[in-house]
Design a protein around this nucleic acid. Structure first.
Lengths: 238, 238
DNA sequence: ACCTGAACACCGTTCAAGT
DNA sequence: ACCTGAACACCGTTCAAGT
C-alpha cells in the first residue's frame, strides 16, 4: 500500500497517468470525491503538480471522458447499418456500466472532445454508407441523443447512487413503491409491480435495465429503418 | 434596488419564498452561482436562516425541481392517448426552456419528489386509459426517459452554456464545425451543414431544437402506437 | 427558545517565495 | 527555470455563544 504509493511517486507524472488515476478514483470512490487535492494525494504528489499537465478541473473531466469513450469497441463491419449501429451502442453501454459516473459527467460538460467527435463521426459514417441522406442522418443522431453513447436518461436511476460505499444496507431491489407513495400514485404502483410479476425468467431484479435499454433502442431503430426505407426528407409536407 | 431588498427583508421567510428565489436566481445567473450564501444574500437574510426551512442544499434542489414541474400545464382531455401525451410533453418542454438549468439538476438528483411522481403518475394513467397493459406502459415510460419531462439528452447542448452573461460575444449560431475539426470529422461536418442548407424556412438557426425534439418524440410515439395496436407483450418470443 | 456569528472542513486556483 | 507551500476566495454545514 505505502510501497505502491512509493513506486508511483518515482514514476514521473504525465497526462495519461493522471487521467487513468482520475477514472479509477471516480470508479471506486464516486465522482463526488474526485477533487484535485484527492487525486494528487492518490498519485503521491502535491496538488499543484497536476496543473502542469491539465489546465484545470474541467479539462481533467474532458480527458476522463475521452478515456472512457476510447474503451468502446471499434466498429465491426456488417452487411446492414442497423446491426452495426446496434452492436456498437450496446458495446458503449457495457463500457458505461463500468463507469457509472460517466453519464452525468458527459451531460454536464459541453463535450466537443476529440475521442467523442471521432466516435460520433464514425457512427454517422455508418449511416451514410447504409444509404441515409445527410439530412436524415442528422435528425437520427439527434433522436438517439445520449443513447448513442450507451445510456438513456432515466428518471429514476439507482446506478448513480454513489460510489461503492458499503455503509448502507444492501437494500432489496425496489419492490415497487413504499406503501404511502403507492396509495397516492396508483398508476406508478401498478406498473412497478407489473414489471415484477411479469416474467419468471427475470428473477427478483424488479426491472431489467438492459431490457429497457434495448426496448427503447429497438423502438428507435425500427422507426428509423422505416423512415429510411420510405426515403424520408425533412422537406416533406408536414 | 436597495429598497426592494428592504421590503423583502421585512416579509417573513418561508419555504415557498426561498424556493422561488432560488429558481429565479438559477434562471438569471446560472445554476453554478446558486449557493446557499448567494441565495441568502438575495433574500436579505443571513445564510443560516435558510436552514430553518430547507434541510440542506440537496433538499433545496429537490424543491426547485418541484416548483418547475408544477408549472407544466395540467392534462387536457382528448379522445386518444397519443395527443394527450404529446401535448403534455411539449408543454413540459416549454417550461424547461424557461429554466435551462433544470434538466441537469433533474438528472443529478435521485428525484422521487412529490410533484414529479404526480406528473409521472398522471402520464401512466393516460396510457392505461388508452388501453395500454401495465406491462407495456412500464416499458414505454422507460423508453421515453427524460423526454417525458420535456428534454432529451443532447450530446451538444448550447443551451446550458451558462447564465445570460453578456461578456462573451454573441457567437453566430454554429455554422457547422470549425475548419480543423471538419477535416478530421468529415461525416459530422456534412450533417452539420446539411441541416443548414436544408430548408430556407428555418433561417440561420443552424439546427432547430424544437424540430429535433418533435422528430424524436414522434418517432417514439409512432412506434409505441404500433406496439400497442399489435397487443405487444414482453412475454412474446424474441 | 430562538437566532446568528464564528468556525470547521473542505474546494479550485493564484502567486510569490524558495530551490 | 522549475517546483511548491502558503494564501485567496470561495463552498456547505456545525455549533456554541449571544439574545
Amino acid at each position: 500500500m505505502a510501497e505502491q504509493a512509493e513506486v508511483l511517486r518515482r514514476t514521473p507524472l504525465n497526462r495519461g497517468r493522471i487521467l487513468h488515476a482520475a477514472v479509477a478514483l471516480a470508479d471506486e470512490a464516486g465522482i463526488e470525491s474526485l477533487s484535485m487535492r484527492n487525486l494528487a494525494q492518490e498519485l503521491g504528489v502535491v496538488p499543484m503538480a497536476l496543473y502542469k499537465h491539465v489546465a484545470n478541473k474541467d479539462e481533467l473531466l474532458d480527458g476522463m471522458i475521452d478515456v472512457v469513450v476510447s474503451e468502446i469497441d471499434p466498429l465491426v463491419p456488417h452487411a446492414d447499418w442497423k446491426h452495426m449501429v446496434r452492436e456498437r451502442i450496446l458495446s458503449a453501454r457495457q463500457v458505461l456500466r463500468r463507469h457509472p459516473w460517466a453519464p452525468l459527467a458527459i451531460e454536464s460538460r459541453n463535450m466537443a472532445t476529440p475521442a467523442v467527435l471521432a466516435y460520433l463521426d464514425s457512427m454517422v459514417g455508418t449511416l451514410r454508407a447504409g444509404g441515409f441522406s445527410a439530412d436524415l442522418a442528422h435528425h437520427v443522431m439527434h433522436a438517439m441523443g445520449s443513447r448513442i453513447l450507451g445510456f438513456s436518461q432515466e428518471l429514476f436511476d439507482d446506478s448513480r447512487r454513489a460510489g461503492r460505499s458499503g455503509t448502507t444496507a444492501p437494500e432489496p431491489p425496489s419492490e415497487g413503491l413504499p406503501p404511502a407513495a403507492a396509495a397516492r400514485f396508483p398508476h406508478l404502483a401498478e406498473i412497478a409491480t407489473a414489471a415484477l410479476h411479469d416474467d419468471a425468467s427475470v428473477v427478483g431484479q424488479g426491472c431489467d435495465d438492459q431490457f429497457e435499454f434495448e426496448f427503447a433502442l429497438d423502438l428507435l431503430l425500427d422507426g428509423i429503418e422505416r423512415l429510411q426505407q420510405q426515403g424520408w426528407t425533412s422537406r416533406r409536407p408536414r
